[in-house]
Design a protein around this nucleic acid. Structure first.
Length: 971
RNA sequence: GCCGCGGUGGUGGAACUGGUAUACACGAGGGACUUAAAAUCCCUUGCUCUCGGGCAUGCGGGUUCGAUUCCCGCCCGCGGCACCA
């Protein structure tokens, strides 16, 4: 046997795969396709670090297995090469970004190749290649032609150190996401993509794909859909008071006939609380303030507030527990359409311009922010929702509606409260009971007497308002829809009557200390009222039952919303409305190293004219100087000969757009190009797209679960809508890998000097060991720390696999012992095949490898192993360690490797070990035949000496048998 | 604050649907081979005691014959969103 020499065999097989184009695929209609995708890397000057191979290896394992299962597997690779780091590096070294990119790609390619990935290298895409970005520009033009790209003057986030405009999502915690530098607001004309038009579609699409739950949740939150209503409030100045004031018949009957004053539109998700809207708030930027400045009596104060608000940065404005500030607009009022009441209008910066209409109706009783504001500024608070909880009433039981009184009895001497500990249910509560037609106080006193015997308590006050709850009462075996009221009493003296036995059986009365009440009481409504009593009034923001709200009184929140929306629509005071947090996508960058936007500005034609498709790609000019500018202009703007052009429509003089596209552009459709990478006529042929279809499995970083995924889904959906792509959702399945961290739990970075270089690891241990170790490190979706020692262990495992060659049987030698050995291995082998097969599909690579290690450890104990077992081992290991396995297969395999199927009959052992428990503790183990009957094993268990000792002569109460696992004896 | 994920030996981590907790690997200790070292192989390795056991899966309760797993209440760490009306 030759020594295991990774360097030699890895080189040999990498050359073989390249020479034979082993992994290049064609659209073979006879085979079922499988498209596996990794996020294509950004080719930085630093090269790959040891974290990069994690997702690549994982999907390589998946792809190699799928191939052995007979699929036609597309597993492509490419480079997302536009972007800042390269541009910055090029500026620093005085070179061309294109040239630097070429070098970096070459280096990445070399590094990827020595890791032995089964990429189809004939399909490489490079986003900076004009043959690629021609189509990125083409897609942009389609968006433009469909009205989804528009230019808008708006404040942008300008990073002072990168000298670049950032999308909202690139500003993290008020600083630049890439460099951590300060960000300021600047006004600039920006290209925007109307992704908000796709908000609903992007949300709905999530229901049709198999993404990790977290990705779905984060995207859903990002889209931020809320449903509710727009409500129109009239705004009047005090000198405009109309005759109709106070006259209910003056309510306008439709939108077409508003009153002679201004309309303030607000969005609310809680139209059911409209009767509780006691004031309005405008964002400082709201137009109405400026429009009504003549009417505002305290204009100078208001102006001062607005000026100050504008000065604040986003961070200051949203900063933590800052007190809510605001100024009332004196002299103007809004009219609540439901009750015609005049309510004050405020300006406050807790209302944001960017969401909804930049104005709100404030309902302090049922919104925490409004409550805080109203409390501070002494604005009226009006409750319109009573708390209500449906606490799993039983469908099959009757429901009784009842008024219920709860008595909170305090003993002022020692600050304790009278409580009940229920025996028939887990409830712990205050004395509570139904009102039998008597008044609240009498009813409460009666309940206290009946349930606890205390005769002398003094009424103090009523606490809170009504609370409703629907639940099951075990002691009465029925449901109750209860309407609770709460009264506070003080105990006068200890005089007490004997109570009924029936009451005694139901609960025990006890005195609980004030500070323990919160943890003692466990019924929802009383916990709530206790909080209200001890912490003072607070806002109730959950759903409930409408009160003090005329025509919706008594309705549950959902019904109340519906009824209110219908009423608003009927009367013309509002309409059903949906809002999204998602904003349009800022698509302009003022940098050189990006795709030029293929539009020209023609004065004669009155605006933006797209380049004809034949003129694409619009290439980046090769120039000496492409430094960013401080002015916010793109570097392209200073290249006169490029900027000045002729209008494709009228032939007159025109200027090119000088902004470039953001980095997200090229990566928003690359998976489509892979299907037909060299097509010069279209971005990808329909035929190829139909064959390869959706990406079957896409794995990428957690950091891309929101933006990249959303952007690419948007482009794909759009292309699908205009008939260019045959499927709506680009990715069928999406998974994410955890990061590989440096030792100590830090991110690997050049500046920290803790980067582990894969080249070095391959040099020392071989690519196979590195790959297998990366898969073995820990759960794939969790972050793990790099540990070179662990790599040593995996290398030892491969050494042992190699060494097993020595134990292969020589067919006719020692026939008897051989058969025995093979049988012993067979069970372990088939269990391993099963586990590895399942684990790869579920991305549990670590346990797949652990299982193969176990198998090898088993095999090491045998003097001889069969060649067929060895073949199976080599096959299932090959996705992880392809080179060594290819080498071994060349010597011991027959034909092509085919993924083995486990034989269910072979994983059944004839003897099993059954644990015997006594009172839940394992006391003995019995090895018995698999097909032992329940009676037999129970009998054997009870006969066991060790068990006997623990049973200690007692009669077993119960003996439980879990098939094939254990016997549990209860004494 | 809200949403999501996680907490198991000295370390990375296993554990099916509630069924023998600690697989696999690292590290450590001991031994074999060797003139010696490396490599390799074998054994031991959760804690603890009185060697029968007792205690251990972040903490405290609960359900169960039986809980890392289910329920309730906390603590800690990570990630996302963050005045979104």
């Amino acid at each position: 046997m030759q020594e295991y020499n990774p360097k030699k065999i890895e080189k040999k097989w990498q050359k073989y795969w390249e020479d034979n184009k082993t992994f290049e695929v064609t659209e073979d209609k006879k085979k079922e396709k499988f498209y596996s995708l990794i996020e294509f890397p950004y080719p930085s000057g630093e090269g790959l670090h040891v974290g990069h191979p994690r997702p690549f290896t994982a999907m390589d394992v998946v792809s190699r297995k799928k191939r052995m299962e007979g699929y036609n597997v597309l597993f492509p690779i490419g480079f997302d090469a536009f972007g800042l780091p390269t541009e910055n590096y090029a500026i620093k070294t005085g070179r061309q970004p294109a040239e630097v990119t070429k070098e970096n790609i070459a280096n990445f390619t070399r590094q990827l190749k020595i890791l032995g990935y089964s990429f189809d290298w004939s399909r490489v895409v490079d986003t900076t290649d004009p043959n690629y970005y021609k189509w990125t520009q083409w897609i942009f033009l389609q968006l433009f032609k469909h009205g989804l790209a528009y230019k808008k003057n708006q404040p942008i986030n300008w990073c002072l150190s990168c000298k670049i405009g950032l999308a909202n999502e690139e500003v993290v915690g008020g600083v630049c996401e890439r460099c951590g530098g300060p960000v300021e607001k600047r006004n600039k004309e920006q290209w925007m993509l109307a992704i908000t038009k796709y908000a609903e579609s992007l949300l709905q699409g999530l229901g049709t794909v198999d993404y990790i739950e977290r990705a779905k949740i984060e995207q859903t939150n990002w889209i931020g859909k809320s449903e509710g209503a727009s409500v129109f409030f009239s705004v009047i100045a005090s000198d405009e008071r109309s005759e109709e004031r106070g006259n209910p018949t003056g309510i306008p009957s439709s939108l077409e006939a508003p009153r002679n004053d201004r309309i303030l539109e607000v969005f609310t998700t809680r139209p059911d609380t409209l009767f509780g809207a006691t004031y309005m708030v405008l964002a400082p930027e709201h137009q109405l303030i400026e429009e009504m400045k003549e009417k505002i009596e305290n204009w100078s104060e208001v102006l001062k507030y607005i000026e100050e608000a504008k000065k604040k940065t986003d961070i200051d404005r949203t900063n933590d527990e800052k007190e809510k500030t605001g100024v009332e607009l004196k002299g103007i009022k809004a009219i609540n359409p439901v009750n015609n009441e005049e309510i004050p209008v405020w300006v406050a910066d807790y209302v944001l311009v960017g969401y909804g209409t930049g104005a709100i109706m404030a309902v302090p009783a049922h919104d925490e922010r409004d409550f805080e504001f109203a409390t501070k500024h002494k604005v009226n608070i009006k409750k319109v929702v009573a708390p209500y909880l449906k606490d799993s009433p039983r469908e099959d039981k009757e429901t009784e509606e009842r008024d219920v009184i709860t008595a909170i009895v305090k003993n002022p001497k020692d600050n304790t409260y009278l409580c009940l500990d229920w025996k028939t249910t887990p409830w712990k509560s205050f004395p509570t009971g139904g009102i039998e037609g008597d008044d609240l106080e009498t009813a409460a006193k009666r309940e206290v007497l009946e349930e606890t015997g205390y005769t002398n308590i003094k009424f103090i006050k009523q606490i809170g308002d009504s609370v409703f709850a629907e639940f099951y009462r075990p002691h009465k075996d029925s449901n109750v829809f209860a309407h609770f009221k709460y009264l506070l009493f003080e105990l006068q003296n200890d005089s007490k009557l004997e109570i009924d036995q029936k009451e005694k059986d139901q609960h025990e009365a006890l005195w609980v200390k004030e500070e323990e009440i919160d943890s003692f009481i466990n019924v929802w409504n009383q916990k709530l009222i206790w909080k209200c009593m001890t912490e003072g009034e607070c806002s109730y923001t959950d759903a409930g039952i409408a009160i003090n709200s005329e025509f919706i009184n008594g309705l549950k929140t959902e019904e109340a919303k519906e009824k209110m929306i219908n009423w608003l629509e009927e009367k013309g005071f509002g309409k059903r409305e949906t809002n999204y947090k998602l904003r349009d996508w800022v698509f302009s960058r003022q940098r050189y190293w990006g795709e030029p936007i293929p539009l020209v500005d023609c004065k004669k034609c009155g605006g933006w004219v797209p380049l004809p498709e034949e003129e694409l790609p619009l290439k980046l000019p090769e120039v000496e100087k492409y430094q960013p500018t401080d002015t916010g202009e793109s570097p392209l703007a200073s290249i006169e000969e490029w900027v000045n052009t002729t209008c494709p429509k009228c032939g007159g003089s025109a200027r090119r757009e000088t902004d470039t596209m953001p980095n997200w552009a090229g990566s928003s459709w690359y998976f489509l190009r892979y299907m037909d990478p060299n097509n010069g006529k279209v971005f990808a042929s329909k035929e190829n797209m139909k064959y390869w279809g959706q990406v079957d499995w896409y794995n990428g970083g957690m950091e891309h679960t929101v933006l990249h995924l959303l952007y690419s889904r948007f482009w794909n959906q759009f292309l699908c809508d205009i008939g260019e792509v045959p499927f709506k959702e680009p990715y069928k399945k999406r998974t994410s890998h955890g990061m590989i961290l440096a030792k100590g739990g830090e991110k690997m970075s050049k500046s920290k000097g803790n980067v582990v270089n894969p080249d070095e690891m391959v040099e020392k241990f071989g690519a196979d060991a590195l790959r297998a170790y990366i898969m073995f490190m820990g759960p794939f979706d969790q972050a793990v720390e790099w540990d070179t020692n662990g790599l040593v262990g995996v290398k030892r495992f491969l050494d042992r696999v190699w060494g097993l060659q020595e134990r292969l049987d020589e067919r006719n030698k020692k026939q008897e012992t051989r058969n025995k050995a093979i049988d012993a291995i067979d069970v372990a082998l088939h269990k391993t095949i099963k586990k590895v097969t399942e684990d790869i599909d579920a991305m549990r690579f670590n346990t797949a490898i652990a299982k193969m290690m176990e198998l090898v450890n088993e095999m090491m104990k045998e003097e001889e192993i069969s060649i067929t077992s060895y073949q199976s081992l080599v096959t299932i290991l090959s996705p992880f360690a392809p080179h060594i396995c290819a080498e071994l297969w060349e010597q011991y395999g027959e034909g092509d490797m085919v993924w083995p199927k486990y034989d269910p009959t072979k994983i059944v052992e004839d003897e099993i070990t059954i644990a015997i428990q006594v009172n839940g503790k394992v006391r003995d183990e019995l090895t018995v035949s698999v097909d032992i009957s329940e009676e037999e094993i129970k009998k054997l268990a009870l006969e066991s000496e060790k068990v006997d000792k623990w049973i200690d002569g007692k009669e077993p109460k119960k003996v439980i048998y879990v098939k094939g696992k254990l016997v549990s004896v209860v004494v």
